[in-house]
Design a protein around this nucleic acid. Structure first.
Lengths: 188, 188
DNA sequence: CACATGTTGTGACGATCGTCACAAAACAGG
DNA sequence: CCTGTTTTGTGACGATCGTCACAACATGTG
């Protein structure tokens, strides 16, 4: 819980009173490696603040999995659009290691936000953060070739390169597995 | 204004009372071709609902312009991250034709949202819409090669292909100008 | 109409990447 | 420790794309 509080404080001033008001919406949860935090086809009714371990978001493109993002400690894993309008999620989120997370229940969050303006603001901040991250990644894919993308990750998210197995990294970079292997060969 | 009202109604129920409360934040504005709706380096303190004409968002990558998106009639043009946290925008938004738009003033909007929950909700819906659009485009660039991207645009946003000059389209697709020319050659 | 400017088409060529095939290495379960 | 399974490395080859160079076409301005 301290991790979450620190995260929130990094975003905004958040008095003890608001923190208390938030509690009913929260629950600490554990996932084994391979467990789904969110299943494609289901509606996303929670946010997950990752405390330990990491997850991947992926969907099925004619029989094979495409990774769309990774969530590490101190990040929020969710499907914004499904969470937002209650439509089924197009992708799954899965624990890649044993994961400890704090679950934000949607209903509880909505109730808490109605009573407390800080919580409403917090929600908006998170949304902005997620949108901003998406914007950044979009730009990278738009203007960089596979090698450039790898370098950019190296620079900005070295954790992904170190913790994610190569095959999954390749699908995230939108690149053949072999290409990642060759880029790594050149680097070392 | 009717266009904007229709747009809002397509997103949510929005009673006349809320519409009235929103008015002080709105203003109809005109831009000549080439005018900036937002200048890179400045803080974005408005949303623009495009009524007529279209705009492009672009930034400078070592001396040459890269288009990051286009905004047509019935869409909202803005820089979410700059609008959200008041930091200077990394990109400009420019009218590609004579543009008529409705300007949402940030201060006015904030005041109106404080008084009226519908307006707060509207803000969140717009944010979600923009994040969702970004998510979609990100996925396309991640897994499609230039030709696939072109086809996808053809299918989902044919307007872009028809109204945007080829050179700017190329920079948007993250592709050499000549490649777009050849793809078009193959298509016809 | 003439000219300057900007946009688009096209050909040649090399670099990068995807695909296929198979070998090597790492890993997990008994 | 052995064995089957998954992950990673590597080579060959073809397709696509980027770059450069230049021609054709369109646009707009006097």
């Amino acid at each position: 819980m301290e991790e979450l509080l620190a995260y929130i404080h990094s975003l905004m001033a958040f008095p003890e009173k608001s923190w208390q008001a938030l509690q009913p919406a929260l629950a600490e949860v554990e996932f084994a490696k391979g467990d789904d935090l969110l299943k494609a086809g289901k509606v996303c009714n929670a946010l997950f603040f990752i405390v330990r371990g990491y997850c991947r978001a992926f969907y099925n493109e004619d029989g094979q999995e495409v990774n769309t993002s990774f969530f590490f400690e101190g990040e929020i894993a969710t499907n914004i659009s499904s969470f937002g309008d209650g439509r089924p999620s197009l992708f799954s989120i899965q624990a890649c290691e044993p994961v400890t997370a704090i679950r934000f229940n949607k209903v509880g969050l909505r109730e808490a936000a109605r009573e407390n303006a800080d919580i409403e603001t917090l929600g908006r901040k998170c949304l902005q953060l997620i949108a901003g991250k998406q914007e950044k990644f979009g730009a990278i894919f738009q203007r960089l070739n596979p090698e450039g993308r790898y370098d950019w990750l190296q620079e900005h998210y070295p954790e992904i390169l170190q913790r994610v197995p190569q095959t999954q990294l390749a699908s995230f970079l939108g690149v053949a597995r072999e290409t990642v292997s060759r880029i790594r060969g050149r680097r070392s």
